[in-house]
């Protein structure tokens, strides 16, 4: 059986890629996609923990479905923001959203 660490390493790598994308990318679509990547990294970790823990398989996967449902809603909101932003500014660069600047 593949050791747990492998799965966790994959999840961590995926999470890091997602986090990098959220921080570094300028296009709002890419930012939202990277956010999804981070969520899925967590999903992998949850599923892996579920299979390796003492409480037995199946329990942890429930969380994955909840996360997927929330992620779907979140993507809907995120893309709506993207559309609203495009209508307002005709660009999708998140750097433009600096109205809160002190």
């Amino acid at each position: 059986m593949t050791p747990l660490q492998y799965y966790l390493a994959l999840a961590a790598a995926l999470f890091a890629v997602g986090a990098w994308g959220v921080v570094a990318r300028r296009n709002i679509i890419l930012v939202v996609m990277c956010l999804e990547l981070m969520l899925n990294a967590v999903n992998i970790a949850l599923a892996a923990f579920s299979n390796y823990s003492a409480i037995g398989p199946g329990r942890g996967e429930v969380f994955v479905f909840i996360v997927l449902a929330v992620a779907a809603a979140e993507v809907a909101v995120g893309l709506a923001i993207g559309i609203a932003m495009y209508r307002l500014r005709e660009r999708l660069d998140v750097d433009e959203l600096d109205d809160l600047k002190g």
Binding site: V23, A24, V94, L97, D98, L100, K101, G102
Partner: peptide, 9 residues
């Protein structure tokens, strides 16, 4: 002030 750039990222 520069800290409060307003950029979410």
């Amino acid at each position: 002030r520069p800290i409060q750039s307003g950029k979410i990222q």
